[in-house]
Computed example of a mutant assay.
Amino acid sequence: MKLTAAKLNRFLLFKLPSAYLCGVRVKEIDFNYCKVTVKHRWINQNPFNSMYFAVQAMAAELTTGSLVMLHIQQSNRNIAMLVANNKSKFTKKATGRITFECRNENQIESAIQNTIATGEGQTFWLKSIGTNENGEAVSEMEFEWTIKLK
């Protein structure tokens, strides 16, 4: 069963309902790219009339985590994944529709190959950049993923 945007959105509804209720949706995913959007609304706002940072973090993490899940699925191995660390940078008020994008530049494949070859856990960083409807960056988030064979 290949991961698709529709399957990931159904996963959100049942496994991460807070993200689903806040409007986080996967729009595109392939082997090297994932795009997630979320619109600033009453349910996901902060007291300063912009999108709450945690909602942005959910959308950004989803872009990176979906790519990791897709690569683990492709490996046909039983591999556990977990966020070990994250860094965030906010540069502009997040209002309107925010689009988060993550591009895999072979970090995931390399880590999976190393963990399969050595049996040891591996870590790697993935970055997701959130932009508003004008194409301006509103936030950048990096997630350190750990993977290991189960």
Rank of each mutant, 00 (worst) to 15 (best):
N49V: 01
T95G: 02
I72E: 02
N78E: 14
N78D: 15
L82E: 00
A59E: 08
M69K: 10
V55L: 10
R77I: 00
I72L: 08
N76Q: 14
V83K: 01
E105C: 04
N85G: 06
Q56T: 00
N86M: 15
C102Q: 07
N85H: 15
V83L: 04
F53W: 12
L82N: 03
V55I: 15
M69L: 14
R77M: 09
M69R: 11
M69S: 15
V55T: 15
M58L: 11
V68I: 09
A84L: 04
T95W: 05
N78S: 14
A54W: 11
S88T: 05
A60P: 06
G65K: 08
L82K: 02
C102P: 05
N86R: 07
I98N: 09
S66H: 03
Q73I: 04
F53K: 01
E105Y: 08
F48G: 02
M51S: 07
K87A: 11
K92G: 01
K89A: 10
L62S: 05
S50W: 02
H71P: 04
A94T: 04
V83D: 10
F100E: 08
G96D: 10
K93N: 10
M81T: 09
N49Y: 05
F90E: 06
M81V: 09
A59T: 06
L67P: 03
A54D: 03
T63E: 04
A84M: 02
G65F: 03
Q73D: 00
N104H: 12
N76F: 06
N86H: 11
Q73E: 13
Q73Y: 03
V55N: 09
A80Y: 08
L62F: 10
G65T: 07
R97M: 11
F53T: 08
S66E: 04
N104P: 06
L67N: 00
L62G: 02
S75E: 07
N49H: 06
N76G: 06
S88W: 09
M81Q: 05
R103I: 14
N76S: 06
T95N: 03
A80I: 11
T91L: 13
K87T: 12
Q107C: 02
K87F: 02
N78T: 12
S66C: 07
A54K: 00
Y52P: 03
M81W: 09
N76H: 13
N106Y: 09
F48W: 15
L62C: 06
T95F: 03
E105N: 14
A57W: 04
Q73K: 11
E61N: 09
M58S: 06
I79A: 04
G65D: 03
E61H: 03
E105R: 15
S50V: 03
R77L: 00
S50E: 15
N85C: 01
T91P: 01
N106Q: 12
T91F: 13
G96Y: 05
K87S: 13
Q107Y: 07
I79P: 11
A54I: 14
Q73G: 02
I72H: 08
H71C: 03
Y52A: 07
